[in-house]
Design a protein around this nucleic acid. Structure first.
Length: 594
DNA sequence: GCCGTTTTCGGCCCGACTGTTTTCAGTCG
């Protein structure tokens, strides 16, 4: 049973307990545990085996016991019991907007409704309005909520969300009443996928802002409209929330509206201990008479942190994954920034499946301030992507040499995205690979091999001294395909041992390696390369999404090889090649197992 | 159910909007 499956069970338990109106804090504990498990970089069964479950914050004796039971028996008796007390259709109903646990409990108890479909019929037949707290509007909202539930994809890629947000912000910036405006929520934290889009505005004329917002051309439906908060649904079904505060509350509101929820709760708890109340309007010194609380901060976001004795914590790491503790102990990382990148080490050209020429990609990279790029076209066996054979590689080299003579202070590195075959063999011989500046090992075939095969094939490639980087290490496509089955901790360790860098592929639907693995990889000594995998000039701008992932993974400039200048990079690649060669003594290769 | 330089028991973040009420519960972020 893997992490996600276990997390889902705890989420379900929380849902069931909510319908049963159990202690809200107990419910919160289950949700917190589920979240923590989802964010783990290691398989929880390994942590269990090592007896380290109690070390995970948010997992206490009770839940640790339940995890044990799930791992050992594949089942949880208590879960089996309580799930029988509540039809599974009720849990699905919780996904309907405007329907919560109380509504679900009521309609189940009074009408015996156990599915979304039955609920829809009951609402249409006006069978709900007669109950206390229900009415015609509520019925309408339920019908609408069900329609939206069926039409809307749960989360969208960050790329798409950012386009929507930027578009709305550019329109709102033209509104005179808007003093300040910012993206907030998970988009500001640079999560890989986004649910709702959150926007914060500072204004002393909130009503004008709300009117402008709710009458934007892309708004399909107004879900709520108040004096400080409004929600709309736009074309395509996505929900956009806006919050308006006075300018002197903008910082506190930005902190609150950025989240994450668990981060906010932790910050506010720390505030309580210091006799402070922290909300979206500011930081307040608590007095005995509640109405006399004195505001001590709010204009700037950093002051929220300062008020509880902490330095600024960047949005990307506000996930309650240790940033609070690091803030208190003064050990926060200095996160990598986009300006730290000196080049892009994974770019395709029209020699394989890219749309632009090497020269065009180079010129566009110079414009972006890079010192170098590596052209890494596909290798010969990936015919569908126009993979290059040995002869074409020589031809391409001539072209690159010619261009390099032309540029000053910029260098095109000759590279390859090299197919790693199912048996771990590489697409080119070592003699050929020796001639290349950058070799990125990649898997594009044989996804369905079992975990041992895939793990061994990647590690075998890493052990080859000429392989510098592993492309999109897990092969996932967000919302479309899970990664291939691999032993991720083993891959991370091998990266540290062999000096082979792990790619953080910035392509919005890859974002692979994912943020949750980066800290562990770093602890194991791994280095990273943030690459766009661009197949055209415009895709060179995907860098920002890769940087977002790296920052969420707490990476610093020195962890990423393409922050090095060209001389340092070349030395570093050479050094890593030596490590690959010397790491495993002859006859002791792990991969001899296959 | 978790957690602890105020606590091993008694707390657990804080507020806005809607709909159905006539003061508030439910939902949501």
């Amino acid at each position: 049973m893997n992490n996600r499956e276990i997390a889902e069970i705890f989420h379900s338990i929380a849902d069931i307990l909510e319908i049963k109106a159990e202690n809200p804090f107990r419910i919160r504990a289950y949700r917190k545990a589920a979240q923590v498990i989802e964010d783990l970089s290691q398989p929880i069964k390994d942590i269990h085996t090592n007896g380290k479950l109690p070390n995970i914050p948010g997992i206490g004796e009770g839940i640790a016991g339940k995890i044990s039971e799930l791992i050992q028996t594949g089942k949880l008796k208590e879960y089996e019991t309580i799930r029988k007390s509540v039809p599974s259709g009720l849990l699905e109903m919780l996904n309907i907007s405007s329907v919560g646990p109380k509504t679900v409990a009521l309609i189940y108890k009074e009408l015996g409704i156990t599915s979304v479909k039955e609920l829809e019929k009951a609402a249409k037949d006006h069978k709900l309005a007669k109950f206390p707290g229900m009415g015609e509007k509520k019925e309408e909202n339920i019908i609408r909520g069900i329609k939206i539930l069926r039409e809307t994809k749960e989360r969208i890629p960050i790329y798409e969300a950012e386009l929507i947000a930027k578009n709305i912000i550019s329109l709102l910036k033209k509104v005179p009443a808007v003093d300040k405006i910012s993206i907030a929520g998970s988009l500001r934290r640079r999560r890989e996928t986004i649910g709702d889009i959150d926007i914060l505005v500072a204004s002393d004329k909130p009503a004008e802002v709300m009117d402008s917002f709710t009458t934007l051309p892309q708004v399909n439906q107004i879900l709520a409209k108040g004096s400080t908060r409004s929600s709309v649904r736009i074309e395509g079904g996505r929900q956009v929330d806006i919050r308006v505060v006075q300018t002197d509350s903008f910082g506190a509101a930005l902190h609150y509206f950025t989240g994450s929820k668990t981060h906010n709760i932790r910050i506010r708890e720390l505030g309580i201990k210091k006799g402070l109340k922290i909300n979206e309007y500011g930081v307040f010194k608590r007095s005995k008479l509640a109405e006399e609380d004195k505001k001590i901060a709010g204009r700037e976001e950093i002051d929220v942190f300062k008020s509880i004795g902490m330095p600024y914590i960047c949005p990307e790491i506000r996930e309650d994954r240790g940033e609070i503790e690091a803030g208190l102990s003064g050990t926060l990382p200095k996160l990598i920034e986009i300006a730290d990148l000196r080049g892009d080490l994974h770019i395709h050209s029209n020699w394989s499946d890219g749309t632009n020429s090497i020269e065009e990609m180079a010129e566009a990279s110079i414009e972006r301030g890079y010192q170098y790029i590596a052209i890494c076209d596909h290798s010969k066996s990936l015919r569908v992507a126009g993979g290059l054979d040995e002869g074409q590689l020589i031809e391409r080299q001539k072209k690159i040499d010619k261009l390099n003579n032309k540029y000053k202070n910029f260098q095109i590195l000759s590279g390859i995205e090299l197919e790693i075959h199912i048996n771990g063999k590489l697409d080119f011989s070592d003699d050929i690979l020796e001639t290349l500046d950058v070799v990125i090992g990649a898997i594009h075939t044989g996804f369905s091999q079992d975990e041992n095969v895939n793990t061994a094939r990647i590690i075998k490639a890493m052990e080859n001294r000429n392989v510098d980087i592993i492309a999109h290490p897990t092969g996932r496509l967000l919302g479309k395909r899970e990664g291939y089955k691999i032993d991720i901790p083993a891959i991370l360790k091998a990266a540290g041992d062999t000096g082979t860098a792990l790619e953080i592929n910035a392509f919005p639907e890859r974002l692979d390696l994912a943020d949750i693995y980066l800290q562990e990889a770093k602890e194991k000594g791994a280095k990273f390369a943030i690459n766009t995998d661009a197949h055209s000039i415009s895709q060179l701008d995907f860098t920002k999404f890769g940087i977002g992932v790296a920052r969420r993974g707490w990476l610093e400039k020195q962890d990423v090889i393409n922050c090095l200048n060209i001389d340092e990079l070349q030395k570093s690649l050479e050094k890593a090649r030596e490590r690959s060669t010397h790491h495993y003594p002859p006859g002791q290769k792990k991969t001899d197992l296959i």
